[in-house]
Design a protein around this nucleic acid. Structure first.
Length: 903
RNA sequence: GCUGGGGUGGCGGAAUUGGUAGACGCCCAGGACUUAAAAUCCUGUGCCUUUAGGGGCGUACGGGUUCGAUUCCCGUCCCCAGUACCA
């Protein structure tokens, strides 16, 4: 053993040993419980960033812990290797996407290995390899047969900056998930996967995973799916130019109708208008009857809607009375039909019934245009009023109905149910459920993705490729222009084919699949990575899945995590798996962020690396001013770490300076894993110091440690050589250290089971401090003391393994007498002996009138009466109680004594 | 605006879910070792006050419940995230 801790030396040694001994490669083993530890796979950009390091450090700690606990742990990694950056590199630098990607994978795997991550590399998958994307296509064909994949012409989300199509999830909030620029609309013929067919299951199955997923992720998915229960109601329509009194029933026959969706059919007697979207068929169908004013307004609204939405400003409500009239089928009342900019064609039916008294948006609209406001629901907050007052505020609660014909007096709940039934019975409506969730648009006009296995035949139409012809391979290259048209459309060797049905010349689909398809099922491929018949064998899936622990950023809450839940349900229906939910426990880690400095004079942010910036700070360390070395005044922010923003720390550099173990230890120690982590360099040195301290402890006691011959299994080493001192025997010092050791084991075990990673590091530090604080010397220590020290050190080393595996392995080899590694030696995480965690003397605080006044030492077994006596006779306490009346004494066993005095 | 989460030393963060607030680490100060420095080790470190022992205040702010509140309840302010007219 070296006297000093040389991180680089031991890290190289153990990385080599692990690889040679295939320490982390595993197989199905029915004798042991399995544990599937999964982390979100990276895009092979060429460089790991600190967010990855954090993600993979947590995952690795979890994997090590479970291994040491005796589980058969599957811990794989792979590559989300289809996607835009490869194609951008091709456009900008003429790089071949395949070569570029493979090189990046090689580089990043090297970084992961230098971090010492314990992956089973034999199971690695990469999305861009034909062996993998063959099964993207296999799934697509299955879904096509199941009626879950279909094509339609539609307005898609379009990112002008990236020249790319986006799914609704990727365009959430009107901004591109990749580059953050505003999303516009474009008409395209697209393939869709029917996620809506599983909308109810996606919602209802949440109860199976509620216990293991962060509440906010489930909430966001719930909001995204947006199930809303209500009713459809049809309003008969006639034009303003029809003359004479017409009965509602007469209008309904052979005339136009406008259908609305409402969640509050109980308020229908308060309707003052029907408001339709500008694109609504009823509006488009009557354009010829509208006045020039109306036509102008419709055009204006449509133009406004195509513009990218500005997140900050609220759009003012606007609209116009079309002159059309609609008839309320419940009351027979005639109301105007308006066009409104606040009604969306994409949701519900594209038209709403406006009830200003009970809906905020309708109220705003009615106020602006001076429309009638009629209250039809009363509640305790909004009592019945005589006549119709001017309503300033909306009343959207449930209550009971007034002025609603035969329904008056009913509660909202009853009315909602009964009125929907009534509408259905009379043929003008029905109870209905709508969703915000749309089908998943998967077509991308891109080269670097999985080709969609569809053929267009002049005679047979849309024909799916045959399974035996899969994979439909990408050509080696294509003309890359980045113009928004698929490069494959310019490669005749690719698209020219024959129809699988009639054998005549036909054309392939040239769009490729959204890369979220790849990540929807990648972690099933790890189970059976070389299967060429099926994506994976159902037997392997039955053993390993569902995933026990998944770790990744929560930015994927409504993208990847909703797609993969959908995909799992499809796989279940195909018969590949037997469960509804693929992930039992999810941990959403916080981002790693750093301070950035930039100049946005030109409209776009130009970032300056921190080394070129002089910063003024206030007493709290917050920036108050920043200037670049050339004198430019800069703005500053806290942003996600990245190389391009100049606030990134390169993992390789960090490993070089501090070592992988110290880096990993620090990133886990610095903050709770779900918090955002603001990177600062100085803390990491504390981790290095800690590892050095542990090293010195072992160095100091090595003579004692190596006495024991190697024997199987963790602390078993101790039993072979030394007997624990008899109960109550041994020195006070030895007893206290044993107590600390076992308390630490208990704490760390609990913490790790609850996915806390910062507090166990603190506990390890405390234990190492406790060993250092012993004033004992190895050559003078009693047998009991040697035992206690050895137990503490061995426990410390084993429990260090999840956080700093190289160091732990090297120190363990010191007393194992071999360098086979902990796992080969059958090491187990220590168990705590509860009888040792208890102290024989504890400090009991004593309060007088709620204020801490003294402490007394007592045995944990002290009776209430003894504690009361000790507290009341305590000298310091008597200063506060003498001459006063003792009203009450509260005694919490083993905790505290509280005395209440008066006078 | 709505929904959710949160506000604890100079900083990151602990605190058995009503029972000694500030564990652990960073920063900082003093000391030991050294010709010197680095490293290491030791001591101190919430604020105010006191010669000392001690005392007072303190978990965003104001109230409440309780012997006792960072923890529970009510109100106010602020921060972060998600969301954007979803009928």
């Amino acid at each position: 053993m070296d006297e000093k801790y040389f991180a680089k030396k031991i890290e190289d040694k153990w990385q080599k040993k692990w690889a040679e001994s295939r320490a982390f490669e595993i197989d199905i083993d029915d004798a042991r419980p399995k544990f599937y530890q999964l982390e979100m796979l990276p895009y092979p950009s060429g460089n790991l960033h600190m967010g990855h390091v954090r993600n993979y450090s947590v995952g690795d700690a979890s994997a090590w812990y479970k291994r040491l606990k005796g589980f058969n742990v599957l811990h794989p990694i792979g590559w989300d290797s289809f996607g835009q950056p490869a194609e951008d590199a091709a456009i900008k630098r003429g790089a071949n996407p395949r070569d570029w990607t493979e090189e990046n994978i090689k580089a990043m795997r090297g970084q992961m290995e230098r971090l010492g991550l314990s992956y089973d590399w034999s199971r690695q998958m990469a999305a861009h390899r034909p062996e993998y994307y063959k099964f993207d296509q296999w799934f697509f064909l299955n879904m096509y047969e199941m009626g879950l994949a279909y094509k339609k012409l539609t307005q898609v989300n379009w990112c002008e900056f990236d020249q790319a199509t986006l799914s609704n999830e990727q365009a959430s909030g009107g901004i591109c998930w990749r580059c953050g620029s505003a999303v516009t609309k474009k008409n395209l013929d697209q393939w869709f996967l029917k996620t809506t067919a599983y909308a109810d299951q996606l919602l209802d199955d949440m109860k199976e995973i509620e216990a293991g997923w962060p509440a906010n992720v489930l909430k966001r998915q719930r909001d995204w799916i947006g199930r809303s229960e209500g009713a459809y109601v049809e309003f008969p329509v006639r034009t303003a130019y029809s003359s004479g009194d017409v009965q509602p029933a007469a209008i309904a026959e052979g005339s136009d109708k406008i259908k609305v969706f409402t969640t509050r059919i109980d308020t229908i007697y308060g309707v003052n208008a029907v408001v339709a979207a500008a694109e609504h068929p009823i509006v488009q169908g009557h354009l010829g009857e509208f006045s020039p004013d109306v036509l102008a307004k419709i055009k204006e609204i449509k133009i406004e809607k195509l513009k990218p939405a500005d997140r900050e400003t609220e759009i003012e409500k606007d609209g116009i009375d079309t002159g059309l009239k609609a008839v309320n089928p419940f009351s027979g009342e005639e109301v105007p039909v308006w066009v409104g900019n606040y009604v969306m064609m994409e949701y519900g039916t594209g038209a709403v019934m406006s009830v200003p008294a009970h809906d905020e948006r309708d109220l705003e609209f009615a106020k602006k245009f001076g429309l009638e406001i009629k209250q039809v629901i009363v509640g305790s907050q909004r009592p019945a009023v005589s006549g119709q007052p001017k309503l300033e505020e909306v009343f959207s609660d449930y209550g009971s109905l007034i002025d609603s014909g035969e329904w008056s007096g009913k509660t909202s709940e009853d009315a909602k149910r009964e009125m929907a039934v009534y509408a259905e019975k009379h043929g003008f409506g029905e109870a209905a459920t709508t969703y915000r969730l749309r089908d998943w648009g998967v077509s991308r006009q891109r080269f670097w993705g999985s080709p969609i296995p569809i053929i267009y035949c002049p005679t047979c139409g849309i024909v799916p490729e045959k399974y035996e012809n899969l994979p439909v391979r990408l050509p080696d290259t294509a003309p890359f222009t980045g113009t928004g048209e698929s490069p494959l459309a310019k490669v005749p060797e690719f698209y020219e084919t024959t129809c699988p049905k009639c054998g005549e010349p036909a054309k392939r689909e040239t769009d490729t699949m959204d890369t979220f398809v790849d990540s929807s099922w990648y972690y099933f491929r790890y189970l059976d990575p070389v299967n060429s018949e099926l994506p994976f064998s159902p037997e392997a899936a039955a053993y390993w899945t569902p995933v026990d622990q998944y770790i990744g950023g929560d930015d994927h809450a409504v993208m990847h995590l909703i797609y993969t839940r959908f995909w799992t349900k499809v796989m279940r229906d195909i018969g590949l798996v037997k469960f509804n939910e693929p992930v039992k426990r999810l941990l959403a880690q916080g981002m790693v962020v750093g301070e950035t400095f930039y100049d946005d004079e030109s409209g776009k942010r130009a970032y300056y690396p921190a080394s070129n910036v002089t910063v003024e700070r206030d007493v709290k360390g917050r920036a108050t001013g920043a200037r670049s070395t050339d004198g430019t005044s800069l703005k500053w922010a806290i942003e996600r770490m990245s190389k391009s923003k100049g606030n990134g720390v390169d993992p390789d550099e960090m490993i070089e300076i501090y070592g992988a173990d110290a880096a990993r230890l620090f990133i886990l120690f610095a903050a709770p894993i779900e918090n955002e982590l603001v990177w600062n360099e100085s803390g990491i040195e504390g981790s290095v110091r800690f590892l050095q301290r542990v090293w010195r402890i072992v160095w100091k006691w090595q003579a004692v440690l190596s006495v024991a011959p190697a024997s199987a299994g963790g602390l078993g080493v101790l039993d072979a050589e030394l007997q624990p001192p008899a109960a109550g025997g041994g020195s006070d010092m030895a007893r206290k250290l044993r107590q600390k050791t076992h308390q630490t084991i208990q704490r760390i075990t609990e913490n790790l089971e609850h996915l806390q990673f910062n507090t166990p590091v603190a506990a390890l530090m405390e234990l190492s401090n406790a060993i250092t604080d012993l004033k004992a010397e190895p050559d003078q220590a009693s047998e009991a003391e040697v035992f206690a020290v050895k137990e503490a050190i061995v426990s410390l080393i084993i429990m260090l393994a999840p956080f700093a595996p190289h160091t732990a392995e090297e120190l363990y080899s010191e007393f194992a007498g071999n360098s086979d590694g902990m796992l080969a030696n059958g090491v187990r995480f220590p168990d705590s002996d509860l009888s040792l965690t208890r102290a024989e003397e504890i400090e009991i605080p004593v309060q007088v009138n709620g204020k801490l006044r003294s402490r007394v030492m007592a045995s944990p077994e002290s009776s209430d009466e003894e504690l009361r006596e000790m507290a009341l006779t305590d000298e310091k306490i008597r200063e506060y109680t003498d001459g006063k009346e003792i009203v009450k004494v509260v005694i919490v066993p083993k905790r505290l004594v509280s005395i209440v005095v008066k006078g």
